[in-house]
């Protein structure tokens, strides 16, 4: 107890009194953190303000809302930024599904006994992970897409799925490998086949370990989806570029777009957090 409040040299009893008074609100260390954070924000804002002042930048925040929601004749409809956000959502969601698919299949192929399977999986991993996503995107859109007759949206989703899938497959594989050998043996000794063993024994345990790294992979995917603007998919980033070229609201729009990306990724992380907690309590 005596070590509880070393920074103010209080006795344990006095410290307890202080703690009692503060506990309905926040403990002292949290207040210090908040003050530090606000100071940091203040300094950054000041630097920003001074810098843009020297540039002679003319802030026009009041013009931004119309690009988020359009109000005309008393009806409200989503503005171009929200439209773009929806496309980013679609690209990311479909890309995520492909990521899981490619990731899981590749992981299973790599761990299989089939020589063809492991070779195909390793070839895919090596190629995809040693070339830039932008190059893959261009390759898919300008070379593969005309051959297969697919559109730019499909190319974008496919490129994202292939790229992130290669990383996801390593997450799946390490998650599966981390399950103790005894679990396989126990399942096999009960007469379970490979499919049932994966489905009921290995994957349910592995998923718990894979969730945190998979979440950061999903966040990466959402951020990387901004690259699809380069093949003229009208996602959030593309919309922002168009608006800026028309209005020169460079700073305002990029700040807004960054905040919108931040909202999605933070939202995703917190959903997974809830999921993780639920899985943990189920154990």
């Amino acid at each position: 107890m005596a070590g509880d409040f070393p920074w103010c040299g209080m006795t344990a009893q006095a410290g307890l009194l202080v703690q009692k008074r503060l506990s309905p609100f926040l403990s002292r260390s949290v207040w210090i953190d908040i003050v530090k954070f606000l100071a940091l924000v203040a300094v950054l804002t000041w630097v920003m303000y001074r810098g843009t002042g020297r540039l002679g930048y003319h802030w026009q925040w009041y013009r931004v809302p119309q690009y988020i929601v359009e109000v005309s004749d008393g009806t409200i409809r989503p503005g171009p930024l929200i439209d773009g956000l929806m496309v980013t959502f679609q690209v990311s969601a479909l890309g995520l599904i492909l990521t899981f698919l490619f990731g899981l299949v590749t992981a299973l192929l790599r761990m299989s006994n089939s020589l063809v399977g492991t070779t195909v999986a390793r070839l895919y991993l090596e190629i995809v992970r040693s070339t830039p996503l932008l190059v893959q995107l261009f390759f898919l859109y300008f070379v593969i897409a005309p051959v297969l007759g697919i559109g730019r949206f499909t190319s974008a989703v496919l490129a994202l799925g292939l790229f992130e899938g290669s990383y996801a497959s390593e997450i799946f594989r390490s998650g599966i490998v981390s399950i103790h050998r005894g679990q396989w043996e126990a399942a096999y000794s009960l007469g379970l086949g490979t499919y049932h063993t994966y489905r009921y024994i290995i994957l349910p345990q592995a998923v718990r370990r894979m969730l945190p790294p998979l979440t950061s992979q999903a966040v990466s995917l959402i951020k990387d989806s901004a690259l699809v603007s380069t093949i003229a998919v009208y996602d959030l980033t593309m919309r922002a570029q168009v608006i800026i070229s028309e209005t020169f609201l460079t700073f305002e729009i990029w700040f807004t777009v960054a905040a919108m990306y931040l909202v999605i990724t933070v939202l995703l992380s917190s959903v997974v957090n809830v999921l993780e907690n639920r899985l943990r309590t189920a154990e």
Partner: peptide
């Protein structure tokens, strides 16, 4: 047809 009991139990923890 053959049951097995292991040294480290190997129950399914989930």
């Amino acid at each position: 047809e053959v049951g097995m009991v292991f040294q480290s139990f190997n129950l399914f923890p989930h």
